[in-house]
Nucleic acid binder design. Sequence first.
DNA 1: CATGAATGAGAGTTCATTCAT
DNA 2: TATGAATGAACTCTCATTCAT
Lengths: 226, 226, 226, 226
Amino acid sequence: MVLKRGRIATATQGGKGKRVDAVNTASQLREPRTERGRRTQRAVLDAAAAEFGEKGFHESSIVSITIRAGVALGSFYTYFESKEALFKALVQDMSGRVRDHVAPVLGAHAGGAIAAEGVALHAFLEFAREHKEIYRIIDEAEFVAPEDWRAHYLNTAARILERLQAAHAKGELGVEPCEAHAWAIMGMNVFLGLRFGVMDTGADLGEVARAANDLLQDGLGLSGSD
Amino acid sequence: MVLKRGRIATATQGGKGKRVDAVNTASQLREPRTERGRRTQRAVLDAAAAEFGEKGFHESSIVSITIRAGVALGSFYTYFESKEALFKALVQDMSGRVRDHVAPVLGAHAGGAIAAEGVALHAFLEFAREHKEIYRIIDEAEFVAPEDWRAHYLNTAARILERLQAAHAKGELGVEPCEAHAWAIMGMNVFLGLRFGVMDTGADLGEVARAANDLLQDGLGLSGSD
Amino acid sequence: MVLKRGRIATATQGGKGKRVDAVNTASQLREPRTERGRRTQRAVLDAAAAEFGEKGFHESSIVSITIRAGVALGSFYTYFESKEALFKALVQDMSGRVRDHVAPVLGAHAGGAIAAEGVALHAFLEFAREHKEIYRIIDEAEFVAPEDWRAHYLNTAARILERLQAAHAKGELGVEPCEAHAWAIMGMNVFLGLRFGVMDTGADLGEVARAANDLLQDGLGLSGSD
Amino acid sequence: MVLKRGRIATATQGGKGKRVDAVNTASQLREPRTERGRRTQRAVLDAAAAEFGEKGFHESSIVSITIRAGVALGSFYTYFESKEALFKALVQDMSGRVRDHVAPVLGAHAGGAIAAEGVALHAFLEFAREHKEIYRIIDEAEFVAPEDWRAHYLNTAARILERLQAAHAKGELGVEPCEAHAWAIMGMNVFLGLRFGVMDTGADLGEVARAANDLLQDGLGLSGSD
DNA sequence: CATGAATGAGAGTTCATTCAT
DNA sequence: TATGAATGAACTCTCATTCAT
């Protein structure tokens, strides 16, 4: 996994709403002071993302990560407070990257609000299939960095809810949106990502996204039902 | 967590479909030959469920589990091959218990198929709120016992799909059901369980279930929409 | 390995010379008082000989031995004081069996004293090839039951020396025999037993014995040499 | 026991014949990269040789070895893969040291081939008396590192046979030498080493060597006998 | 900054032995 | 006498973290 830009530790950005700040946003990292240092830190971060993604947090070891990164064991502690701090930093970064991957598609979408969610799902599924290790890292955060994990999902749900509310304000929704809807949609997305992205059945992601979109749009019941 | 009955190692049962057998179902345990032994094994299982639920797999230790169970360290290995084997046994057991908790509600339900899913969700949410540690154990299995974790979710999705197909055969559905629908529903349920069961916002579970049910039934779009 | 008769604990017998008594000859065993008990003890001894022979003392375990013997774990301590005591008992028994296998051939031999040693070696080689586990048990005694191991070799050497002295008295030897000769002969025998009995190259044991016998008789040098 | 030079992992060296390579010669050790590391590894090796020599493999413990070496427990695993690997490394080293102690005497010897073996035996007996723990370690390898043990004795026998064959080619021998002769000689040496070196009766090693040499030269029979 | 040796708390696991049934 | 559950000391090995060079 390659971390583009200096994204680390900038996972959350200002927003109007009830966003939860990622915990200790900056303190996880010890900022390098030279260009050489920056490269070392980057190498460790990339190696760690790969290692954690493959083996999980507990099976990964600092020695192994530094070997992978091609730096000395001791250098690790020049840039990270601890194994946990490294993991947290990664979770926050990954969280931001997922969001950044999906956001543009949402912005660009011309159709209705729900169709936008379908397009976003499609983008998300592709991302999951492409970056399985990110999925794994965020998932494992439930046990290793629970607060960051919560922050990630609370923020994601909050963003979904904001969009639903905006759509509702524009009269595009049949129901008054609530938190449960946001979590339901998020859960759908996550599990479809697991099944068709990470497990990768080879299924056509477009069809998966369409099925989910139809469900969101009209439900599974007979039309005009109740 | 109290394991009622001799449930352990009976996590899967016969079904028509493409069920995935839990891995090494029986071989994880060394069956006690006396009543006294049975009590000891039970004590360890209960202690382990509690410990794993609270602290997670890696923070839990065998010493601590046996102390909690009130037995000697060595006794652990009389009944379990390893820490991992114990965990697997628990995952299989928990998986069965979740299913067994929801199944009766589904069987008893009189209304339509989708409404049945809503009722099942309600039961599930209550269960999650009541047994937070089960949730945690199954979730952590993604990293500790991946095969059992897969088996759990593949089986659950398969059961949902079967129900949808049966409903479709009876003409109760507006669309032809597919695997994506099953995983979407499962994802919804799991995340609603997380948010309103485990995180426990204090929200009325009935309302949550109703919102989800409406979504499933009619979607979020304007009726006759698109 | 089948222990014939009640040989256990009768490994050494009266002799004129400087024989070393096996240590704690009797105390290793707890004598059974019933026929049933005798059978149980025998079963354990046989199982132990096989297990120790195959896996060595430290890799062998009491549980495994009792399983092999078809008796309960607890029964072991009815007949043996400890794992070590069992091993000692076996060493003493095996020591006696080796001697008992070779003795008759020596007694029956008609030719000269040195030829008798050759015949004895042949018998010994056959025995080693046939009972590899006995070899192993006696060898391992060097580390597990050093006193019994010493006793075995001191006695064996003493017997060889006695025979040499008798031969010398009869004028059959070219040199005055000493302890070094006895140990040299014993070492030859043991290593030939290792190479051609236990490692079992498939070589003709008769030829091996003949080569050794010639060496003993005339040495390797040119005849009439010095 | 002090390991002089960097002998470890150089147990076998080129030779014409059918030498058996020591098993995994190098892979047992994790080579230190600094001088400090080299000292630590050496300290552990010396402590281990002493400990294994005194108490045997199974009674020795890593903790105890590291305490003896004056290093932390963890340091052990910086340089050795496991207790077994350490033992193997030692066996290979000891095997080489025995050979290196005897070789020069053989090379320097002016007289006949058999007399050379006598001189070699003398050197060997002195070595055994001086380094009892080496004896013990090689012996115990039969059970702890059987492949290395075999390699040691097969190589030693091969070297003896080569010498006998060279002597035979020069017309110094009365018989055609064969493997049995080599193993017979080796067995003699080993057992004389045990009796007069390790058990240390206080006997004059020169006399022992002379007795053995006479046996080898002319045998025990009456001259012109058979 | 970089390096890698050193540290030691802590974990899982084994198994001889005891003892209640 | 037979059974097998229970016990816990002891052991090997791991790895995050520190620190001297």
